[in-house]
Amino acid sequence: MEILSELIIIIALSLAGNAIAAALPFAFPPAIISLFILLVLLATKVVKEEKMSRVSPFMLKYMAIFFIPSGVEIIEYTDLLASSWIHILIISIISLLITFFATAKAVEITERIMRRKSS
């Protein structure tokens, strides 16, 4: 019974996310809307954490399985991959380095400001 009600919550929230995203005047990922709703429901204890303890931890643990088809789909884009793999590689690596640097420094500067304010 608990498994069923948890499944119903997950599916209902997913569908609600789709419906709300379709009604928005701008493009926004439906799944993130569902995520927000569940987060609010958990934080306000409308949905108890224990309620989401049968299906959800299992799905989180094996989450990677759900992306395997998206990865396999690369077989349909071999031409594009052959012509642009170097761009993908360069963009991935350079943006990784810059993002890492910017994030680390932003945190360190924030910590320094907070320390100065509190002392």
């Binding site: 997950i10 929230l13 997913s14 569940l38 989401m52 989180l60 395997i68 998206s70 396999v72």
Partner: peptide, 21 residues
């Protein structure tokens, strides 16, 4: 594959649980 891919939205929704924890 499409059947499994259908669960992308539910799985993303459940990320809320891991944030909450």
């Amino acid at each position: 594959g499409d059947f499994i891919g259908m669960f992308l939205t539910p799985v993303t929704t459940i990320l809320a649980l891991s944030i909450y924890r």
